[in-house]
Structure formats: C-alpha cells, structure tokens
C-alpha cells in the first residue's frame, strides 16, 4: 500500500494532491513502523511526517502555485538507471542476514546487549530508546539538535529577506 501511494505520487500532476498524498504516505509508514516494534519512531513519523511536513508543503504550494508542467510520459534513461540500481541492490540483499532472526549479528553486538540489560539500572528508565537517545548517545542527539537549529537559521536567512515586489516581507523588524 505504501508503494502504491508512492507510485500515485509520481503520476499525479496536481501538487496539492501530491501534498495530501505525502501525508497519507507518512501515516502509512508510521503504521508500518509500529508493526516493526518501533513505537517511538512511528510516533515521530506520525507527528512530523503527517502533521508538520504536510502543512509546510501546503504553505510552500500556496507560495509557488500548484500546477505542474505536463511531463513526457515515461522517461527511458532515468528509468533504466533506477532499474539497474534497484537490481544491483536486490542482488546485495542476498547477503543480508534474514529478516527477524534473533541471532543476526546486529542483535548480538555488545552495545545492543549492554543497552538492553544494563540501561534499566544505569539510567533508571524502562524506555530504552529514550535512555539511549539522551544518555548513551547524548553527543549524537546534541549534534542533531544543532543541525535543526542550523536549519532554522538557514530558513530565516532565506525567507526573511525583502520580497521583490515589496508587498510585505515575512519579517518586519526581525
């Protein structure tokens, strides 16, 4: 279903429909994450993907217009490149350990075992995702926070400039 939605996104010409479909796509992937036991990720995807980014997309579309130029039907060269890449990757998956097995290398690595067994009395929280996020990988998360902050600075720099026709810029006195 996720793939079907993605395919519709490709074919649709009206960009407003595309924005709404992206929201649906995010929500579907959130349910998929829940099925794969990643409740935290699903929560984030539902809030961010289906909520904020749809609103952002609509905000952009109201600025740039929602008509897409008519495309030629199917472009051969990109399709060829994509198919070849996909086939190579599928060949690569044959070496990936099978899905869902408990003795895959990722589950036996010592960090995983440590997180699952020690985190409850090292940090005193049952939710391992939170304790790994904020404590064991605190540097990472701080980096991510800084990245988001930098993105904000970038958006402010790009969007707060005066508009060309002078009809009320985004920021006055910022």
């Amino acid at each position: 279903m996720l793939a079907v939605t993605a395919l519709i996104v490709v074919r649709t010409q009206n960009l407003f429909a595309v924005a709404m479909l992206t929201g649906i796509y995010s929500l579907l992937s959130a349910t998929f994450f829940t099925l794969l036991d990643a409740v935290d990720v699903a929560f984030t995807e539902a809030a961010v993907g289906a909520g904020v980014s749809t609103v952002l997309m609509l905000g952009t579309l109201s600025l740039v217009g929602h008509r897409q130029k008519k495309q030629r039907t199917v472009q051969i060269v990109p399709l060829l490149i994509v198919t070849v890449t996909g086939l190579i990757l599928m060949y690569g998956t044959l070496d990936i350990p099978p899905f869902g097995e408990a003795d895959n290398p990722i589950h036996l690595h010592e960090t995983t075992v440590h997180y699952l067994e020690e985190s409850s009395h090292e940090t005193g929280m049952p939710n391992v995702v939170t304790s790994v996020l904020a404590s064991y990988r605190g540097y990472d998360t701080m980096g991510e926070t800084t990245v988001i902050f930098t993105a904000m600075v970038g958006v402010l720099l790009l969007m707060s400039g005066r508009k060309k026709d002078g009809t009320g810029g985004a920021d006055d006195g910022e």
């Binding site: 990643a38 935290d40 990720v41 984030t44 995807e45 961010v48 993907g49 904020v52 980014s53 952002l56 990722i106 960090t111 995983t112 997180y115 699952l116 391992v128 995702v129 790994v132 996020l133 990988r137 990472d140 998360t141 991510e144 990245v147 988001i148 993105a151 904000m152 970038g154 958006v155 790009l158």
Partner: peptide
C-alpha cells in the same frame, strides 16, 4: 533499540532539511 534512536533523530533532521 539502536536503529530506532538513529532513525528518530533522522526523521526530525529530515523535516528540517526539507523545510530548508
């Protein structure tokens, strides 16, 4: 839990970059 943590942050960073 480790991939969950990585992807959690990646989603939020992803929306920030697509906003940019």
């Amino acid at each position: 839990p480790l991939p969950h943590v990585l992807i959690l942050t990646a989603i939020v960073v992803g929306v920030a970059t697509s906003a940019l």
